[in-house]
Amino acid sequence: MPVRTPHFPDLLFNAAGRLRRWEDSLMGLLETHGYRELHPSLVMRDPVPAVALRFFDGDDLVALRWDFTTALAGVLARRFPTPPPRISYAGAVFRRPAQPWEAVERFEVGCERIQTEGESADEADLELAKLLMAIPGLLGLKSAILHMGNAALVRRPLEAEGIFGELADAVVAALSRRAPHRVKEALDGHPSAARLAAHAEALLSELDGPGTLGALASSPYSDLLQDERLHMEKALQALLPILPPNLELRVDLADVAGLGFYTGPTLRLWAPGAQQELASGGRYDRLFPGLGRPWQAAGFCVRLSRLLDLAATRPDLFEALQ
């Protein structure tokens, strides 16, 4: 009997119904906040990354849509002289997973907030955080945790020390593992090793509520990161009074996932005991300039496939599931 991995999941009645209902609820929420749906083609062209599901269309190497943000960025940069400010999307992406038990075909709903250069990003970041805060209740999660981070907390010190390429990757990988001893190993012999190791210790020392920001004071880069700290403090002041019941807000200073992409604040949604984050996003201001458009952007994506898995394996985390 052949062993079949769940890389291309067939959704049976309950899961199919749940996916449809969740998609509709989330897209409805986004629509009421002014987000308009774009539906990029399921087939994407160059440059096709190795993680994509690739095939030949005649002589052209193409791939199934591997990422909505990349697909939408191409559409927007090609077809819009000025960006639509609010975009939503829903559908499947196909990407080879890092872990063998993850699916290749994944269902997502997400949104993007796009601005022209020079517009204040603070309001847009808050708008996205507020939207993400509404999602656990909409999906029927009994409780959830919102992690706030900022990619610049790692990116800026590395850039200030002139650390790029493989060495920067090694430091980021060590931080991603939350392993300060690996940061020291990676920087062994580098002139900034002691400073960056102390910074890593500061970033990893706390993972809690707003007080976590205080850990930045012990970093050798606390002056360099003043703006980021102020931005996070302002965001917390705005969000804490309107935090829904059963949603906890935590500050994760060492959030480095997607650091090559994110440039500023990051958001991640967890359920207690869930093995993977259920939604994630942040600010990525380098994407559109790379495509010749002077626009800045932020967004988030809700991982519906992970939520479907969670509903199947941990129904106790949800209010009565249909």
Partner: peptide, 17 residues
Amino acid sequence: RLVAARGAYLSEPGRLR
């Protein structure tokens, strides 16, 4: 080395730390 499950640690640090 002391290792931790990413999900368990990040979603329930109060329990694991």
